[in-house]
Design a binder for these strands. Structure first.
Lengths: 172, 172
DNA sequence: AACAATTGTTGTCGTCAACAACAATATTTC
DNA sequence: GAAATATTGTTGTTGACGACAACAATTGTT
């Protein structure tokens, strides 16, 4: 571990401020002081959560001009690769609830990127297709997404990114 | 569903066709058919998101008996390692908004795990401390969190987990 | 034909991030 | 030292999101 005690240490680098030379002048520099994470370091979940936040923010920023968020991109990509899928199938594949997918598709349909076509084989379900505009747009989105992916590579290193994809390939 | 789920996904995107009449009998087995992710594979963000969902669910499940969620655990850990921190400092360190931290601390204070002590050097701020009960509880939480971490190692492999932590160490 | 399951839809609830506004207090500036 | 500015904790609002529950229409099952 790094510097600080791993156990219930009552002393801490941060609170030193309170005891030390104790003149009443407390300048607000607490923010600069190193705050120990203790047990949090070594937790995969914490690192993954922080990384996921970063990566989503970069995706949103990179695709801000076209106003496409990660979930929307994933829906468009799956429909583009598998035209005619039902909403249930898309939801299942992406781990989205069908109730949520309804709103996502409403938005994408409003933007004329997706069409819900009544299925002839099952009148309950809708066959999902990209419109011509949706296909053209998706091509552009993919270019921007590739740029985002380059940002990731810059951030963590190209070979680290490869390793990451390999390690997490089971979750796709 | 659609008769033959559009296409065998991984192979040919049906794009060009669209009009292939041959739908025949529709058995509802679309769910079993492999749905291609196309461009989604190779996107770090997608894999990371799915993994993060899995890892949080396992954490919540593993610590369900003590009713501690990931964010609560991170707050307790940081306070335990750095007693006397202000709410602002904790929020900044963990990337939580201070508005959100208010509710988190309300809950933890109700459960007698944390105490907000009025700071003598800055009457605006609260010095955060674990109660005796909070310290004892945190020790138990850490044991359960370690068990969760073992689940992660089982899921992706111990050395893959190590690599992951190394790759993402910059985000902690 | 009666019953059960699936699909899309609507709605509610709880979590969470992102803001905005505010009172109390602290710091800075003149 | 007084006024202007900034920070801290708090409350509230908004919107995205997952988890559920209920429902009509339709399909599958017995």
């Amino acid at each position: 571990m790094s510097s600080r005690a791993a156990q219930p240490a009552l002393k801490t680098p941060v609170s030193a401020n309170g005891k030390r030379g104790g003149n009443g002048q407390a300048r607000h520099q607490e923010q600069d002081i190193e705050v120990g994470l203790d047990g949090l370091i070594g937790h995969a979940g914490y690192a993954v959560r922080r990384f996921q936040i970063w990566i989503f923010q970069d995706f949103i920023r990179t695709l801000a001009a076209v106003d496409i968020k990660p979930t929307q991109y994933s829906v468009l990509t799956v429909i583009g690769a598998n035209p005619g899928l039902s909403q249930m199938a898309v939801a299942k594949r992406l781990g989205i609830e069908r109730a949520r997918l309804v709103h996502l598709l409403d938005s994408l349909e409003d933007r004329k990127l997706v069409r819900r076509v009544q299925s002839r084989t099952d009148r309950r379900s809708h066959a999902l297709h990209l419109t011509a505009r949706g296909q053209a747009s998706l091509r552009q989105f993919k270019l921007l997404a590739a740029e985002h992916e380059r940002h990731v590579a810059e951030k963590i290193g190209a070979e680290n990114r490869e390793q990451l994809l390999r390690i997490l390939s089971a979750f796709t």
